[in-house]
Amino acid sequence: MTVAMTDVVDLDVVDEETAANVGTVKALWADRSGRHISSVDVSDGLMSSRVLNWRQVVAVGPDALVTSSSGGEPNDDEDTSVDGADEATSLSYIGANVLTSDGVLVGSVTDVHFEESSGAVTALMTTEGRVDGQRIRSLGSFAVVVDPDVE
């Protein structure tokens, strides 16, 4: 199932084993390949937060994000060939510049669609339209780099 990042932010975070609310989703972070959601920044409402690996996410529902305290297994299609792909990096997609690999700025990211089970990014929603996830080359502090639109 595909999920929109903006629908996940502010959801309650519920521990699968205790059924307790452990906080709310403050933000989702992506790995440096830009192709996977890597971690969840969980706010406990007390001016502090902690970061969960996306593999700990059991389910994303309309009202809560359910997590497991165990780390889970790596996703089969997770790209671990890129430095930092398996780390909880602090790279945020929302607001990031979108830059084509031929040097053209094509807006900024307003939302990210991704597969709930794997965290794989399927599309970026930008101020200039939709960018297919297959076009993503990398995500850095300056921009998300994408292949030019050949259509």
Partner: peptide, 12 residues
């Protein structure tokens, strides 16, 4: 004046 940006990292 243009930034030099890496395709593999998105860094200026």
């Amino acid at each position: 004046g243009l930034p030099v940006v890496t395709v593999d990292g998105g860094e200026d």
